[in-house]
Design a protein around this nucleic acid. Structure first.
Lengths: 168, 168
DNA sequence: ATAAACTTTCAAAAATTCTTGGAAGTTTAT
DNA sequence: ATAAACTTCCAAGAATTTTTGAAAGTTTAT
């Protein structure tokens, strides 16, 4: 199979997957493209290869830099900005887990905390049930939070080996 | 604070959170409402309380039943269908992890597998790099897959206690 | 067989999210 | 100070996802 075909396939497929991960199609595509490229690319090159608008590519590259999934680079004697992907898969995982924690866990934590404060003085049966649910929800969220922290702290190779040993 | 207020607050807040979890606002709201209710509710009651259309509530309840997050119930001498939530937080977690695995991990696994097959005969440097990335991606996905299976198998209390002990 | 009580379907409307493309803003070189 | 080379912003348009509501479909009782 031709390199160009494979690259195209991967980028398209990754774009589709991205959408079921809550990542916009173009962000996933751009990330995939940079992942496949050992070297760096300019905005221009990304636009060209993926047929996306300048604004979109600019925004998406900015987001990816924000997620620490790609880095900005400059070349001496060239004032364009170039972008290169983080290629270490474990690092990529760390960045994604960090983002998901920020987007999914922290807000839930905050919400439940507030609601718990509001049920502090529960009296009737119904309120007590709500209080129970909230407190269980809270402890579950805490567990997920702890788990994601552990994943983040765990060493690349140690992680699964250990978890496996422990639980199997 | 009044029960009604708290309930309303929770339902609304959960709806908002849901959207950043890839769950539609109304699905999250309906689930929240049933979670707060110790007993069962009819479609009608849900519609009334959340001001959602019949079709929407019907569809969302069907999905929630599909996720095993709520159960259908019948009452003797009444032909309406009633719905009651699974209240065990660990069970809820199991169901959600199962769904996410289905939606996020399995398709990625499949995609990467196909792409790897297409790069089997890689020759030049570029293709070899692509091959490397794919194989790392693959092993990462496998790890996540294993991890989610472990989470699913782990006993409610054993889980985090053990992981914590191991990794801290 | 019919009507009443419910449930499901589905096409259209609404809401949300993503993308575009041109205008405005920056930075650098001269 | 100006022009060239880039980057960023943002309002409008496109695409996607969610929700509605009314009509069609089922089931049960009589």
């Amino acid at each position: 199979m031709k390199t160009e075909e494979i690259r195209q396939q991967f980028v398209q497929a990754w774009g589709v997957l991205g959408t079921s991960w809550g990542i916009s199609r173009s962000m996933a595509q751009v990330h995939a493209l940079l992942l496949l490229n050992k070297g760096e690319m300019s905005t221009e090159e990304v636009m060209e290869e993926l047929k996306l608008s300048r604004g979109n590519v600019n925004m998406v590259l900015r987001d990816l830099v924000g997620w620490n999934l790609i880095y900005k680079q400059t070349k001496p004697g060239d004032r364009k900005e170039y972008f290169i992907a983080e290629h270490d898969i474990w690092q990529i995982a760390v960045r994604i887990i960090t983002e998901r924690k920020k987007r999914e866990i922290m807000p839930a934590k905050q919400t439940v905390k507030t609601l718990i404060a509001n049920t502090a003085d529960a009296k009737d049966v119904e309120q007590l049930h709500i209080k129970t649910m909230l407190s269980e929800l809270n402890s579950f969220i805490e567990q997920m939070d702890t788990l994601s922290d552990l994943l983040l702290k765990a060493e690349k190779n140690a992680l699964l080996k250990n978890v496996l040993k422990l639980m199997s």
